[in-house]
């Protein structure tokens, strides 16, 4: 099993054990390769960033980690994804249980046409029996963790769709947190949000990283710098599948100048140069 150092630890020599890793992960859509030979390991308690240009396969990789990719018909997955050393694609793995333990926050907030309260407990009430009187407690805990409680505590029965987009995204995070996942996969969670809401989500991730492992797909390098302990840069040349071009501690990866694709990507973000990819 891979062992990694993590940013922010008091003892730099301290290592953490990987709880989620991929080995030679490949994804195909018919004959087209979407991802090729992905090897990575994610340690407990770290924020791991996936950066790279659009279409490189970052979201596809993320969806492999909790097998949400199973919902995409016509895609074929090869290689291994291991969660605590157990193959997530093995027969012994309960995929629904996996998705409880490896939660997901999507690019766009997905709230159901229900009340705020019902949205928060939507998943957890299917996972375990909760007495009616305890539902509010579960919701309060999750909403507090998602820093939304103060804004909605007086209107828990109002339709969730009346919230702003930023609040909806935090509501989705609360819904995921209510499941008490070990890992949260975040697929560009701030791409649909204004700067203020983005800041709120960023602050939340900073807070959440104390207790949980987070895998964050982002286009924003500043966000990656601010939040991620380590990042993997995924690139894809036209006609080839996405692959990990480099991986390591965030600043180390960002400062690499020997990789043209990474330089282009970082340059684009900083407005230094214009790139095609």
């Amino acid at each position: 099993m891979i062992e990694t150092k993590s940013k922010g630890q008091s003892d730099p020599s301290e290592t953490r054990t990987c709880i989620l890793e991929t080995r030679q992960l490949k994804v195909y859509a018919g004959k087209q390769v979407l991802l090729q030979g992905i090897d990575l390991g994610i340690s407990e308690g770290e924020v791991f960033g996936l950066i790279g240009p659009s279409g490189a396969g970052k979201s596809t990789l993320l969806r492999c980690l909790n097998r949400l990719i199973d919902l995409d018909q016509g895609l074929r997955v090869e290689g291994a994804v291991l969660f605590h050393g157990q193959s997530v694609r093995g027969r012994a793995m309960d995929v629904d249980e996996l998705r409880v333990r490896v939660g997901m926050l999507f690019q766009q907030p997905v709230v159901f046409p229900l009340s705020i309260l019902k949205n928060v407990i939507f998943g957890v009430r299917h996972q375990r029996k909760i007495a009616r009187r305890d539902r509010l407690l579960v919701a309060e805990k999750a909403l507090r963790e998602a820093a939304l409680w103060q804004e909605v505590k007086d209107r828990l029965q109002t339709p969730a769709l009346k919230l702003s987009v930023g609040q909806q995204q935090r509501l989705c995070l609360a819904r995921t947190l209510a499941m008490e996942p070990e890992i949260i996969l975040m697929d560009e969670p701030t791409s649909a949000l204004d700067p203020k809401s983005t800041q709120a989500i960023d602050d939340l991730i900073m807070e959440l990283k104390k207790k949980r492992t987070i895998v964050l797909v982002t286009h924003h390098l500043n966000q990656a710098r601010r939040l991620c302990d380590r990042v993997a840069f995924i690139s894809a040349k036209s006609g080839e599948g996405g692959r990990i071009a480099c991986m390591g501690e965030t600043e180390t990866v960002m400062s690499r100048t020997d990789l043209a694709e990474l330089s282009d990507f970082v340059g684009c973000e900083q407005g230094v140069t214009c790139c095609e990819s």
């Binding site: 409880v100 997901m104 499941m179």
Partner: peptide, 19 residues
């Protein structure tokens, strides 16, 4: 996205159908 969100929360096929 409704289906994906429900699946992402660990709802089984039958739970997704009913909910």
């Amino acid at each position: 996205p409704y289906i994906e969100a429900a699946a992402g929360l660990g709802l089984s096929d039958s739970q997704r159908v009913w909910s």
